[in-house]
Design a protein around this nucleic acid. Structure first.
Ligand SMILES: [Zn+2]
Ligand SMILES: [Zn+2]
Ligand SMILES: [Zn+2]
Ligand SMILES: [Zn+2]
Lengths: 142, 142
DNA sequence: TTGCGAGTGGTGATATTATAACATCCTTGA
DNA sequence: TCAAGGATGTTATAATATCACCACTCGCAA
């Protein structure tokens, strides 16, 4: 992610929060920035490390609170199978995204609007879906 | 799961392992039994507790090794979003299953053969997919 | 102005989930 | 008999996540 697009993403996040009547506070903004800067899913404790140099050394709850907020706002997604987090440039409030994660380079592509499963159990109503595909991206195929 | 079907599942698991040239040892068998008995995804440390009464009190590695083995054999799946495990009655060696998990009662239904995603990034090759749907089963709809 | 209350973040402790590293035991077959 | 591999036991620790409590700030109403 280039410097410019990072700045644009942060501005978009700012107004996205405002629209929701919420505040993108400095801590939250900094965490989002770190997640967006990373070129692969990033771990909570790596964020913690990255925040250390700042004035108050951050503790775990600080990071997890920020991540919870950002996830609720649709600005960050959790990769469940990795216990790691990725930035989202779409800012969609609906929970679900379909993630394609390259096991070689760590790059993550996000897609939306997957159709409902074909073979759903009778009467089941989906509330939230976790869909994570692991494999090799076009750049990493040998 | 009834007593009878539990026994049948264990027998099937036994022969499934034999076919693969592997052994369903007592620890592994016991862990599989516990997972199959549960009517909801079960946590590793709950298994650990359940194994305690036995002769040698089990330690974490024991449980995780058994789970690793059972997952490799396709007898157990991990629910990534819950850090929990469910038994599989299909014994499919290919990694992927599509899970429908009721947030009310914890019941899990498994389906297979979901079609490839429609909107895949260009050139991406999927190796393993995690698909977990959370919602409400037919019994729990209000 | 004063005081309340919601929201936010700091802090120390702790809970939960998972693995590393090494020792022991047991089978199997040369 | 002995070696090799695999399965398990054991101790410790790493990695991930939450709890409980306090302090600060801001907006707002009495
Ligand atoms: Zn997204
Ligand atoms: Zn790649
Ligand atoms: Zn299965
Ligand atoms: Zn249900």
């Amino acid at each position: 992610m280039t410097r410019d697009s990072l700045i644009r993403a942060l501005e978009a996040a700012e107004s996205h929060c405002t629209e929701r009547g919420e505040k993108l506070t400095p801590v939250r903004r900094r965490v989002l920035e770190l997640v967006l800067e990373a070129d692969a899913p990033v771990k909570a404790y790596d964020l913690l490390e990255a925040l250390k140099p700042g004035p108050g050394a951050a503790k775990p709850p600080t990071v997890y609170r920020a991540l919870d907020f950002l996830m609720a706002a649709g600005l960050v997604h959790k990769v469940e199978a990795l216990n790691a987090f990725v930035g989202c440039s779409h800012a969609h409030d609906d929970g679900g995204a379909e993630l394609f994660i390259c096991s070689d380079c760590g790059s993550v592509e996000e897609r939306h609007g997957a159709p409902d499963p074909v073979n759903m159990p009778d009467g089941f109503v989906i509330e939230r879906s976790v869909v994570e595909h692991f494999g090799h991206c076009a750049n990493c195929r040998h």
